[in-house]
Amino acid sequence: MNADTTPSYVAFHGERLLAQGDLRNVVTAIKPLADRGEAGVLVFDAASQQVDFDLRGTLAEVLARLPANEPVADSDAPRGRGRPKLGVVAREVTLLPRHWEWLGRQRGGASVALRRLVDEARHASADTDRVRAAQEAAHRFMTVMAGDRPDYEEAARALFAGDRDKFARCTQAWPADIRDHARRLAQPAWPG
């Protein structure tokens, strides 16, 4: 999932998938459990990072505290260098003199050359990056939800080795919701 799409979340209560979807829907689903004082609810974002929320107060208060989907530009904030309306952000890059000399000789100057090089590298490594991101997301989720399950270590090895069949065998005995979500996360990591 890229940064341009709305993030997706999943919530587990113990071994059971409780909710999935946008942040508001997931928080709405877990709020009653928090109100009853039930523990064991874990929420993960699309990259399988655990997310915590302040669930105190009414549902409306909790939802009001959630971060907005889109960052809001602060019109009173001082503007830095670059072209912020176009999404250009100025940052510091440290290079050796020979790198600056080469960049200075390129058509369009250093910034154009650097953007072109980054775009070419992103394009060339898109498949590798997709596989790595899927492996890391699946592994983060598996570590939290299945780290003490039988065959966890073998499943992790199979995930990073690109062995879909072995991964399926190693995860077969896991609780269905955990197994299915781990497999969904790992799907982009498999060849072909």
Rank of each mutant, 00 (worst) to 15 (best):
E101H: 13
S125C: 11
D74A: 09
L17T: 05
W100P: 00
A3W: 07
D177C: 06
G108P: 09
D4K: 13
T128G: 13
F12A: 02
A77H: 14
L96E: 04
A11D: 04
D45W: 03
D74Q: 11
F141C: 07
A126E: 15
L63P: 01
F12L: 03
L42N: 10
R65W: 02
W190E: 05
R81T: 11
L66N: 03
R91E: 13
L117T: 00
L86D: 15
Q135F: 06
R98D: 08
C170S: 15
R157H: 08
V89A: 13
L117A: 03
T58A: 07
A138Q: 02
G14E: 10
W102E: 09
V88T: 07
R140F: 09
D129M: 07
D45E: 01
T171V: 01
A60D: 13
R83Q: 13
R130V: 02
G14A: 12
G104H: 01
Q49M: 04
L159N: 08
E38Q: 12
P175D: 12
V27F: 14
W100I: 05
R56P: 00
P71I: 11
E38P: 01
L66Q: 07
P84N: 10
V112L: 06
A121T: 08
G82P: 13
T171N: 03
Q20P: 05
G57F: 09
V26T: 06
G147I: 03
A39C: 00
D177P: 04
A113R: 11
A39Y: 05
L59M: 02
L96M: 12
F160C: 02
L33R: 13
F141K: 04
T5R: 13
S125E: 15
E101M: 02
L159F: 14
G37F: 07
A113H: 03
M142F: 08
T6N: 10
E120P: 04
R107W: 00
V41P: 09
R149H: 08
D54W: 02
V112Q: 09
